[in-house]
């Protein structure tokens, strides 16, 4: 199991040369969160309080995503990048939301690495994955056959991991200002939390 480089639409690559997609596909099922991971989520929740959440936008990776959001017409204070969205939810709810093992692994990896990660049901997708504008010019995550959903948006229902899921596709979006190794580390961390060891093949920069 290795980390793959997603394709980027040519015009988009000219526009944003450092925009990149890395992804990994591996076996994984949705099941209740085991106690050790639940404890990890609770521990992270205890350590992640108001001050770290307030300081988050100034950190290198969230700051890079904020800049990219502005460049593509999103207000990062309205449409939050994944780590800021999780932080906001943590502050509002008083704890991180625990859903199931896969979602919790994603939460832990995002909070630890600050990388924009998402997870989907791999059997609902056809490789390779990539980023392109759709017919309306909206930047979307796409597979070989179809549009999956808006970039940085939650995956649509038909690709969300569920009880029928047997293989997972974890994606990481890299933008200018975020080193390629950190993007790969985000993927590696999700896999590690789910008990999978990933190998990084080819380039480590997210293009």
């Amino acid at each position: 199991m290795s980390i793959e480089t997603g394709w980027i639409d040519n015009q988009l690559a000219d526009e944003f040369p450092e925009l990149g997609l890395r992804y990994a596909i591996f076996d994984g099922v949705v099941e209740p969160t085991p106690p050790e991971m639940w404890n990890q989520v609770l521990d992270l929740s205890t350590r992640f309080r108001g001050a770290p959440a307030m300081a988050l936008p100034s950190k290198p990776a969230p700051s890079a995503y904020r800049a990219f959001f502005r460049q593509v017409g999103l207000d990062p204070d309205v449409v939050r990048n994944p780590v800021e969205a999780i932080a906001y939810d943590r502050i509002m709810r008083g704890t991180f939301r625990s859903v199931h093992r896969v979602a919790d692994a994603l939460t832990v990896a995002i909070v630890e690495t600050h990388i924009a990660l998402s997870v989907m049901d791999a059997d609902s997708l056809s490789e390779p994955l990539g980023i392109r504008p759709d017919d309306e010019g909206v930047l979307v995550l796409a597979d070989a056959d179809r549009t999956i959903g808006p970039l940085f948006g939650p995956p649509p229902g038909d690709v969300t991991p569920g009880l029928h899921t047997r293989r997972l596709a974890v994606t990481a979006v890299g933008v200018a200002g975020i080193p390629g190794w950190l993007v790969d580390y985000g993927l590696w961390r999700v896999a590690d939390l789910l008990g999978v060891v990933l190998e990084s093949e080819g380039e480590t920069t997210p293009r």
Binding site: G73, D75, V79, G137, V138, F152, G153
Partner: peptide
């Protein structure tokens, strides 16, 4: 932050 409608990411025009 100013109340703005949530938009979707796109390549901005010169005016935008």
């Amino acid at each position: 932050p100013p109340k703005a409608a949530a938009t979707r990411p796109h390549v901005l025009s010169y005016a935008e």
